[in-house]
Simulated assay, not measured.
Amino acid sequence: MIRILITGGSGFIGTNLVDHFAVLGHTVINLDDNVPKKKEHQVYWRNVDLLNAQAVKQIVKEFSPTHVVHLAARTDLNGKQLGDYKVNTLGTNNLLEALDEIQTVQRAIFASSMLVCRPGYIPTGELDFAATTIYGQSKKEMELLIRKKNLLYDWLIIRPTSMWGPWFETPYKDFFDRVLAKKMFNIRNRSCTKTYGFILNGVVQIEKLLFAKQVEDKVYYIGDAPPLNIFNWTNDIATALGYKKPPSFPYYIFKMAALSGDMLQTIGINFPMTSFRLKNMTTNNILPLDNLYKITGASTYSLEEAIQITLNWIKNNK
């Protein structure tokens, strides 16, 4: 019997992954200190904080998973020091120690982040890091921690790209909401292209990595090919809604808005545009997916299907 332990199963990726494995008929539990987004997921939920080493060991021993997907993490960029992200490091270590005490695990997947490298930087190898945020540094430390362990089961690391779709939150839920509200504007002559990932394609990719007979590499980016031009994507969403294409404005207007957002952020007020977000919007970030696609094959859902599924979810979850 396949028994899958998912940490962070109450989050965006985790909610979709719990759904996916439950539909496949696998036995699943979700270790998370947050209540599931879906009421139907209460049956899979175990209220466990990964920083509580004893509680983690107890539930891992009781469940004795055959497969593990470790998603639990602090993922925002608001931390001031590495210790603010201790769930990403100490929490991972507690899970690794718990898994060391059982003999049932066949393969484990550990979720890192594409932000172990700054946007626009393409790593030359699995140990090439270029993090510029404290969050990214914490994920780098997590990856190195896993590699230092003499794990007795197959393992690999995934780095989700910019994921979007049902159950998403900031920033891409905000992006769709602005298009829906006709408040999305393109930056004139500043188009960029990025690797994005539709979440339902992503969960299939994770499933295939979890059960593949052999995985040669230790790091896989999760995402869709080809990459998307963000302004074309905006226009595609507008077209699906029956809207006109959003208008374009000069870059300096966005720059002024970003500076205002930076100032508001210092006093705890969120604003849809900051310098960090503007840089992300105008920096190409095409990530390597070749090794992923050798195992998973082409994406399950097309861009048009993914947009429609997402718009339907938003409509049904207002």
Rank of each mutant, 00 (worst) to 15 (best):
P160H: 07
V219L: 11
E169G: 12
L180T: 07
V215A: 06
V219C: 08
L180E: 04
Y196Q: 06
N186G: 13
E169P: 05
G165H: 03
V204S: 14
P250R: 00
L209T: 00
E216P: 10
K149V: 02
D174N: 14
Q214W: 08
K208N: 13
D177Y: 13
L200Q: 08
S162P: 05
L180Y: 03
F175T: 08
C192P: 10
Y196L: 15
W155N: 12
G197A: 14
A238W: 03
F168P: 06
F185W: 14
D154E: 15
G165T: 11
K194I: 15
D217F: 03
I230N: 05
K149Y: 14
W155F: 15
N150V: 04
W167S: 05
G197L: 12
T193E: 15
M184G: 10
I237E: 00
Y221S: 08
K213A: 08
L151V: 00
I206D: 04
L180G: 04
A225T: 11
I187Q: 01
L156K: 13
Y221C: 13
K194T: 11
L228M: 14
K255M: 03
Q214P: 08
K182W: 03
N235K: 09
E207T: 01
I206A: 01
F231M: 11
E216C: 12
R190M: 11
A212Y: 03
F185S: 07
N150T: 12
D154Y: 07
K149E: 14
T195Q: 02
Q214N: 15
F249A: 13
D174I: 12
L151M: 02
P226F: 13
F231N: 09
A225C: 08
G202T: 14
A181I: 03
R178G: 06
L152S: 14
I222P: 00
P246R: 06
E216M: 07
S248T: 14
Y172I: 15
G202N: 05
Y172F: 15
M256R: 08
Y153E: 03
I199T: 12
D177E: 14
F185G: 07
Q205F: 13
Y251A: 11
F168S: 09
K213P: 11
K244Q: 10
D154G: 10
Y251N: 12
Q205Y: 07
L228K: 02
K255G: 05
F211C: 09
T161W: 00
G202F: 13
L152M: 08
T195N: 00
K208E: 09
I158F: 13
T170R: 08
K244G: 13
K148N: 15
N186D: 09
D154V: 08
R188E: 13
E169H: 09
L156E: 06
T161V: 07
N201F: 06
G202W: 10
W167Q: 07
K255S: 06
L228S: 06
T234N: 09
A225D: 11
T161I: 04
S248E: 14
F211L: 05
I253V: 12
L210P: 00
F176E: 02
L151E: 03
A240H: 07
C192D: 09
G197R: 01
F211W: 11
C192I: 12
K218F: 02
L152A: 11
W233M: 13
Q205I: 05
L180P: 04
Q214C: 06
D177T: 13
Y243F: 11
Y221D: 02
D177F: 10
E216W: 02
